Simulated scan of single mutants.
Amino acid sequence: MTYCVGMVLDRGLVFMSDTRTNAGVDNVSTFRKMFTWEKPGERVLVLMTAGNLATTQAVVSELDERSKAVDERAPSLLEAPSMYQAARIVAGMLRDVIARHNQAGPAAESPFGATMILGGQIAGGPPRLFLIYAEGNFIEAGEDTPFFQIGETKYGRPILVRAYDPDMDFEAAVKLLLVSFDSTVKANLSVGAPFDLQIVQRDQLALGPSQRIPADDPYYDAISRRWGEALKSALEYLPDFSL
């Protein structure tokens, strides 16, 4: 399983992904699920993936190959005129890869299925964030839906819904995401550290701060421990039920 979150802030975009994949409890591996492309001063793009590993790796490999060769018949993320067109490229690639892997076509229930989050900024436009489905269609984040999750989403969603604020700074956003990821890790063994973090600052048109956060990271440990203590304290503060 997987857990990835992309979030839109007034200051830009924040991305975080786990790195655990498994084919059973005795076959757990670490694979990167976040990928980036940039032309400093012109564009920056971040892609996160969830689903069948062979499918997602094939999509990323083909996107990489297109970015290194000029071919009008095979548009590249580094040549797309807008983030919308970049999303169309990724969506089409995902649909085509699934179709090749599964002759029955790109059905959502296909064992070769995958979902992706694409975000970034291209000169002349604002930062944008898209959720791309296995069928090759996609939706864009907005005021009503300012963040996207893929993979094991349910455990980490409540804290995001309650605490998200578009005006929060990047430091607060990373703290919020780590709480969300910690809640997911505690509830699901198929999600785990290390976590990959990438920040895209509005109008910088280049990759911002990035970091890999291991399971024994002191800050993550403090967040996990203090969040657990805070929940217990909050529960004790609530009025008791009367029988």
Rank of each mutant, 00 (worst) to 15 (best):
L45Y: 00
D217E: 04
P40C: 08
S110H: 11
M116G: 10
T184D: 11
V14F: 00
A173Y: 04
N102W: 06
D216A: 09
G6N: 02
L177I: 07
L231S: 02
Q85C: 09
A91C: 11
A215C: 09
L53Q: 10
I132H: 02
G125I: 02
M168R: 12
R66Y: 12
T21N: 11
E72M: 02
A134H: 07
G136H: 09
K33G: 07
R226T: 14
L13D: 07
L160K: 05
R157P: 00
E152H: 03
G228W: 13
A222C: 04
S82E: 08
I159C: 08
P126Q: 10
N137S: 09
V59W: 10
A123P: 00
E135R: 06
D144N: 13
G151W: 07
R11S: 15
S242P: 00
E79T: 15
C4L: 08
I139K: 09
F130R: 02
G208W: 14
Y220T: 03
P218A: 14
A74I: 00
R20N: 12
G208I: 10
L177G: 14
G113N: 15
S210A: 15
P239C: 12
R128H: 03
A80D: 07
L53T: 14
Y84D: 09
V70C: 04
E152M: 11
L243S: 08
A54D: 13
Y155S: 12
Y133F: 15
S67C: 15
L94E: 07
A99G: 12
A123R: 13
L94H: 03
D169S: 08
L131D: 03
L53W: 08
T55E: 04
